[in-house]
Amino acid sequence: MEKYLIVGLGNVGSEYEQTRHNTGFMVLDAFAKASNIVFEDKRYGFVAETSLKGRKVILLKPSTYMNLSGNAVRYWLNKENIDQKNLLVISDDVALPLGAFRLKANGSNGGHNGLGHIQQLIGQDYARLRMGIGNDYPRGAQVDWVLGRYSEEDMQVLQPSIDMAGDIIRSFVLAGINITMNQFNKYGKGPQAVKAAGAEKKD
C-alpha cells in the first residue's frame, strides 16, 4: 500500500490555538473532522490515519514547536518508510493575502522557521501548500502578527480556503502534485477566487 505523509505546521498548546502560525494545524483538523478520524499523541507529534482508494494517508501535527518541525517530519518519513515525493507540508505564509494559497512541488523556505528546519534535515525537494495569512502589521511586529489569533471576520475569509485545502490533500494523494497544482493554483489568488471555485463545484 502506497503511503503519504501530510504535515500541518503549528505550535502545540492552548495559547497557540487559532493563531495565524497554526493555520497548518487548522487545515489538518478540518480534514480529520471531515474524514471522521481523530489525532493520537505519538512520538514527535499528533498523528491520525485514514485511507483514500487504497492509499494510506498519515496526518501529522508536529509537537516539536515550529522551529524544530523537521525532527517530526524526518522521523515519520523514516518510521513509515514514506517516499519524500509523497510528503505534503502545509504552512502559513505572510507573503500571501489572507485566504490566498499557493501549492508548489519544491522550493525555498520563504523565511518560514518550520519550513527552514525541514529543509535543513531533508532538503527542498518536497511539496508544500502555503496558506496566506496577510501581512497587515507595522514594521518589526511580524512575530506578534503570526502569533495573533484570527478574528471571526478573518475566519469567514479563511474558511473556504481551509475547505479547499482538504480537496487539495485528496487530489495530491490520488492524482499527484503536478495535476493538483494545475487544478487548484488558479483558485489560490485570494478569497474571491476560492469562493468562485466553491460555487463552480456546486453547479
Score class of each variant (00 low, 15 high):
Tyr16Cys: 11
Phe25Gly: 00
Ile37Thr: 14
Glu17Ala: 13
Gln18Lys: 15
Val7Asn: 00
Ala32Gly: 10
Tyr4His: 15
Gly10Met: 09
Gly13Glu: 10
Ser14Asp: 14
Tyr16Phe: 15
Leu5Thr: 09
Asn22Pro: 08
Met26His: 02
Thr19Val: 10
Met26Gln: 09
Arg20Cys: 11
Ile6Glu: 06
Ala32Phe: 07
His21Asn: 05
Gly13Pro: 12
Leu9His: 01
Glu17Tyr: 11
Ser35Val: 01
Ser35Cys: 08
Val7Ala: 04
Ala30Phe: 09
Leu28Pro: 10
Glu17Leu: 13
Asn11Cys: 13
Ala32Pro: 09
Leu28Ser: 07
Asn36Leu: 13
Ala34Val: 06
Gly13Trp: 07
Leu28Val: 11
Leu5Met: 12
Ala32Ser: 10
Tyr16Lys: 03
Asn36Glu: 14
Thr19Leu: 10
Met26Pro: 01
Phe25Asn: 08
Ser14Lys: 15
Tyr4Lys: 03
Val38Cys: 11
Leu5Ser: 05
Val27Met: 01
Arg20Lys: 15
Ser14Leu: 13
Tyr16Val: 09
Leu9Cys: 00
Ala34Glu: 15
Leu9Met: 00
Ser35His: 12
Arg20Ala: 08
Leu28Gln: 05
Arg20Leu: 07
Val27Arg: 05
Leu28Glu: 02
Asp29Thr: 04
Ala34Gln: 14
Val27Ala: 14
Asp29Pro: 08
Met26Leu: 14
Tyr16Ser: 03
Gly24Thr: 06
Asn36Thr: 10
Val38Arg: 15
Ile6Tyr: 04
Ala30Val: 00
Glu17Ser: 13
Asn22Ile: 09
Tyr4Leu: 05
Val38Met: 13
Ser35Lys: 14
Val27Ile: 14
Ala30Trp: 03
Gly10Ala: 06
Ala32Gln: 03
Ala34Thr: 11
Thr23Lys: 00
Asn11Thr: 10
Glu15Arg: 15
Val12Arg: 12
Arg20Glu: 07
Thr23Val: 15
Thr19Glu: 04
Val12Met: 15
Val7Tyr: 06
Thr19Ala: 05
Ala30Ser: 14
His21Ala: 02
Gly8Gln: 02
Arg20Ser: 08
Met26Ile: 08
Phe31Thr: 02
Ile37Met: 02
Asn22Leu: 12
Gly24Pro: 08
Thr23Arg: 02
Lys33Phe: 01
Phe25Met: 10
Gly10Arg: 04
Phe25Arg: 04
Asn11Ala: 12
Lys33Pro: 00
Ala34Met: 13
Thr19Lys: 01
Val12Asn: 12
Arg20Pro: 07
Gly10Val: 01
Ile6Thr: 06
Val7Cys: 01
Ile6Ala: 11
Val7Trp: 02
Leu5Ile: 06
Leu9Pro: 02
Gly8Phe: 06
Ser35Thr: 12
Val7Pro: 08
Lys33Glu: 15
Ala32Lys: 02
Leu5His: 05
Asn11Glu: 11
Ile37Asp: 00
Ala34Leu: 12
Gly10Ile: 04
Tyr4Ala: 03
Phe31Glu: 08
Arg20Val: 07
Gly24Ile: 07
Leu9Gln: 02
Ile6His: 07
Tyr16Ile: 07
Glu15Tyr: 10
Glu15His: 11
Ser14Met: 08
Ser35Arg: 12
Ile6Arg: 07
His21Gly: 01
Leu28Tyr: 09
Asn22Met: 12
Val12Lys: 13
Phe25Ser: 08
His21Ser: 04
Tyr4Asn: 13
Leu5Phe: 07
Asp29Tyr: 03
Met26Ala: 04
Asn36Tyr: 01
Gln18Cys: 05
Gly24His: 04
Arg20Phe: 09
Val12Thr: 15
Gly13Cys: 03
Gln18Phe: 13
Gly10His: 03
Asn11Asp: 11
